[in-house]
Simulated scan of single mutants.
Amino acid sequence: MSYRMKPIHFSKLFFIASSLMFSYANAQSTNPTLSSKARFKLDFTIGPNFDIAPASDTENKDIFGGRPAVSPFLGVRATHLFSKKMGWYAGININYYKEHKPTGYRQSFFESFFDDFGNALFGPISYVKPSAELGVLYRIESANWSIHPGVGIGHDTYLADKSNTRYKTGSDGVKHELTYDRESSLFTAHIGFSANYYVSRRGYLALHARYHQPLQSATAHVIEKTDGVETSRVDFKSNAIGRGVFAGVGFGLVLGKQ
């Protein structure tokens, strides 16, 4: 005895397919992607900090000093995604490098001794150059990915501000004075992006890259005076000192969801 399967009418197939598609679409709408759920985020990154001041300025390091072309940094960044398309962020970077001394200003024995002694004793601390930034970002999100281009403003300790004056009185009673003055803690403008890949509901891989441009001129001066009268002066001023690029990778946590 044989049985024949009854053919399923096309309208029934269409109804079943439509029902499945509707159910899937409804499930997707009630289960947004991991990236769209995040509202408050905190991440930690590490990477290189590239000094990209042009050669025309680096030739004047004899008066200003400088920093290595590449140095490491550790970054901490908090992000608040306050709307579907926008957010803001705040970050602190711990840059780590030993300054290059200016060669155009010869330190006295005691200045050099205390600088070298301080670096030897507190090297890991004295090499720390902090910077901070605050900005706004735009949200581009797809599946478990999010890309946030943004702009901001910050303050960067490119080199520590410094001022030294030493005096010497000659055998003829004439007083000689030599002053070295440097101001290089600068406000900076930032432009860049961050990319996040969510590996879980609470964790994501983070990539940050940004370019920063000083908004102030760095200045350095060497001034000689004789009996209070200025006899020699060498000045340096640049908007490029402090220009650079950060690129860091790390891991982040979702602290709050939408």
Score class of each variant (00 low, 15 high):
residue 191 I to E: 00
residue 99 E to V: 09
residue 3 Y to S: 11
residue 141 E to D: 14
residue 86 M to H: 06
residue 55 A to T: 12
residue 77 R to K: 06
residue 229 V to A: 13
residue 146 S to W: 12
residue 123 G to T: 02
residue 234 V to A: 10
residue 57 D to T: 05
residue 177 E to Q: 05
residue 22 F to I: 11
residue 251 F to C: 00
residue 208 H to I: 05
residue 96 Y to S: 08
residue 258 Q to T: 05
residue 190 H to M: 02
residue 58 T to V: 07
residue 128 V to Y: 08
residue 175 K to Y: 01
residue 231 T to L: 00
residue 110 F to C: 08
residue 141 E to K: 15
residue 108 S to I: 04
residue 146 S to M: 08
residue 83 S to W: 09
residue 234 V to H: 13
residue 105 Y to N: 12
residue 224 E to T: 03
residue 141 E to F: 13
residue 125 I to P: 09
residue 57 D to P: 01
residue 168 K to N: 15
residue 188 T to K: 12
residue 100 H to A: 01
residue 208 H to W: 03
residue 5 M to V: 12
residue 258 Q to H: 10
residue 171 S to H: 01
residue 202 R to A: 14
residue 4 R to W: 11
residue 8 I to P: 00
residue 79 T to N: 10
residue 165 T to K: 12
residue 204 Y to S: 10
residue 7 P to A: 10
residue 63 I to K: 03
residue 239 N to G: 06
residue 63 I to P: 02
residue 12 K to H: 14
residue 14 F to S: 15
residue 13 L to I: 05
residue 169 T to C: 09
residue 256 G to Q: 03
residue 228 G to H: 00
residue 256 G to Y: 05
residue 243 R to L: 03
residue 19 S to M: 14
residue 87 G to C: 03
residue 81 L to Y: 07
residue 231 T to A: 09
residue 105 Y to A: 12
residue 204 Y to A: 15
residue 171 S to I: 10
residue 168 K to W: 02
residue 143 A to W: 15
residue 179 T to N: 10
residue 198 Y to C: 08
residue 89 Y to A: 02
residue 40 F to C: 07
residue 114 F to M: 15
residue 124 P to Q: 12
residue 156 D to V: 03
residue 225 K to I: 04
residue 203 G to Y: 06
residue 82 F to A: 00
residue 199 V to C: 10
residue 217 S to P: 04
residue 63 I to T: 08
residue 212 H to V: 01
residue 72 P to Q: 06
residue 110 F to I: 13
residue 191 I to C: 01
residue 134 L to S: 04
residue 227 D to K: 09
residue 30 T to A: 14
residue 174 V to F: 02
residue 74 L to H: 03
residue 85 K to S: 14
residue 46 I to M: 04
residue 224 E to S: 14
residue 183 E to F: 09
residue 253 L to C: 07
residue 146 S to Q: 14
residue 240 A to K: 04
residue 194 S to T: 11
residue 67 R to T: 09
residue 241 I to Q: 04
residue 217 S to Y: 05
residue 43 D to L: 08
residue 143 A to T: 13
residue 151 V to S: 00
residue 104 G to S: 08
residue 159 L to Q: 12
residue 145 W to M: 11
residue 164 N to C: 07
residue 40 F to H: 12
residue 47 G to P: 09
residue 159 L to E: 05
residue 223 I to A: 10
residue 212 H to E: 00
residue 81 L to F: 11
residue 180 Y to C: 03
residue 179 T to W: 08
residue 238 S to T: 04
residue 94 I to Y: 12
residue 15 F to D: 12
